[in-house]
């Protein structure tokens, strides 16, 4: 059971990383400053989680 939990945990980190990359991609493509700010704010928890800070 512990192994399954560990695998699921890693999967969730992978998902968080993928979502983070998608947000960064959207940020790079964006021309609207409000959207840029929005993407930057939304990106924060994903970065903090993937880096295991929060």
């Amino acid at each position: 059971m512990q192994t399954i939990q560990t695998i699921i945990g890693y999967l969730y980190y992978a998902i968080a990383a993928v979502i983070g990359i998608v947000i960064v991609a959207n940020f790079v493509r964006s021309r609207d400053v409000r959207k840029m700010l929005l993407y930057a704010i939304v990106l924060s928890p994903f970065v903090l989680r993937v880096l295991r800070v929060k």
Binding site: V28, M36, A40, L43, S44
Partner: peptide, 10 residues
């Protein structure tokens, strides 16, 4: 430039 500013702020 705006992106650099936003990233810097972030």
């Amino acid at each position: 430039v705006i992106k650099i500013v936003v990233v810097a702020l972030w």
